[in-house]
Design a protein around this nucleic acid. Structure first.
Lengths: 252, 252
DNA sequence: GAACCTCAGTGTTCTAGAACTCTACCGTCC
DNA sequence: GGACGGTAGAGTTCTAGAACACTGAGGTTC
């Protein structure tokens, strides 16, 4: 196999339309294309990327599915207002990693300390009222933009171990699994709509009182014991839940 | 314009790949294709529908986005396992009837009129920008307490019929089904967190600016045509979404 | 027995275009 | 002034095919 071929292959590994989409994503993220701006028309774009209309359209389709752009028949293609969608049927992690969506996800550790739990947390973790819990506060960044604020509450015994791990690098689940042998098999999640408090708003870089999702999740290990209580705040303008419904049998 | 042309046009209104997707949907729903079954390969399917590979693939893309099929490179295209159970449960309580919970549920009709749709509505119902839609505004009461405000938008032709029904008594779905023969088989729902506007807050008996869920749902009939667009507001203090998660296999 | 190769079958990417539809806008005609 | 109709510009649908890439299975080699 010649060097040229090998090279072509390596480049060719990522389909053309993915690379085009990536280029456009960068233009949008980089600010070269502001929200609401109109892109060049499809024929122009196709020409400038030296591909067919169909190929270009595949790239646009990707971006549209990510809600980065919207296309309007007869009018043009526009940069959409920023927001992230979550398909609840895919049962990935609501509160956690969105990396499956191809975005650049980072986590910033805001704090880790022992503290007194509020009542909901104590109840969820089945702890006595005056116990102390280990609180882990993390900010999730998607493309360098704060996406969610996550507070994880751990029972004291587990907290003692976790506190030694490098949480800026290692996901909490991995610490639990590989260092403590705790595997989470089940979780119960409750999502409500709330207004952000001052502290949460500050960390998330938005205004107090803004609408947000609040997700509370209790994770259990194989033995059924509660292991983690997560409370996550996600500003309402950055997130959406979507579902596909099928009413096969009963039309009730 | 000749009759033939007019007819062809009317039929041609629905793109070929939408009709193909609909045919496949029926095969899946009808049981001709059981979950896990492999579909004919794409070239075969294209031939049997007398279209190009590209066109067929557009149809498959639709179905994949609805989670009705999954495609696996090198292996084939398969009917997806129905992950519906969870869905149906949720559906009831969401935008509509909470009666399953044993509460006393009532509906108050606030208004019914023709109006100009906003863009999201027009797009969802695939109407031209200047069309008019029939708007139905209803308040759901649980134990005499306002629970949700629901605005339903219907295409003009359907609205003409619905306007004659006694909507204070008859559920909209029944009107559609028994008077118009329209059965809703599929819907797409998007939930976001917003702050209530003044009007919505007044109708719901709470304060403007309060946090709320906003659910937008597009319902489709058996032919795949959008039939109703629902926009529902539920104050955040009156409602929660809950889910039970199981991470059996992959701990990913 | 394990590692490697090859091959058939299947999904994926891409080309090069042609024809169609939708929207906004701008006249013209009553 | 309002209704109608044409038009430019933009997105959408579709054809006909060629080449590529992934998976599993079976054979071959060591």
């Amino acid at each position: 196999m010649s060097g040229v071929t090998a090279n072509a292959k390596r480049i060719g590994r990522v389909p053309r339309y993915h690379r085009i989409a990536e280029t456009l994503r960068e233009r949008i993220r980089g600010g070269a294309l502001a929200p609401g701006a109109r892109l060049d028309n499809q024929r122009e774009l196709a020409k400038s990327f030296a591909v067919t209309l169909m190929t270009l359209r595949q790239a646009l389709e990707l971006l549209e599915r990510e809600h980065l752009i919207t296309r309007r028949h007869g009018l043009g293609t526009f940069v959409a207002a920023p927001s992230i969608d979550y398909d609840i049927l895919q049962l990935r992690r609501f509160a956690g990693d969105l990396s499956a969506k191809g975005e650049h996800v980072a986590t910033r550790l805001l704090g880790a300390r022992f503290a007194a739990p509020d009542r909901r947390v104590a109840e969820a973790l089945r702890l006595p009222a005056r116990a102390r819990v280990f609180v882990l506060e993390r900010l999730r960044l998607v493309d360098d933009h704060p996406m969610s604020l996550q507070r994880s509450f751990l029972p004291p015994l587990i907290g003692d171990e976790v506190v030694r791990a490098d949480l800026a690098r290692t996901p909490l689940h991995q610490v639990l699994e590989f260092k403590l042998g705790v595997v989470i098999v089940r979780a119960h999640e409750t999502v409500s709509a709330v207004r952000l408090g001052r502290r949460e708003a500050r960390d998330l870089g938005c205004h107090a009182g803004e609408a947000a999702f609040e997700s509370e999740r209790i994770s259990h290990d194989a033995g059924g014991a509660p292991v983690v209580f997560d409370r996550v705040f996600i500003p309402g303008d950055r997130f959406r839940i979507t579902r596909e419904l099928h009413y096969e049998g009963a039309t009730s």
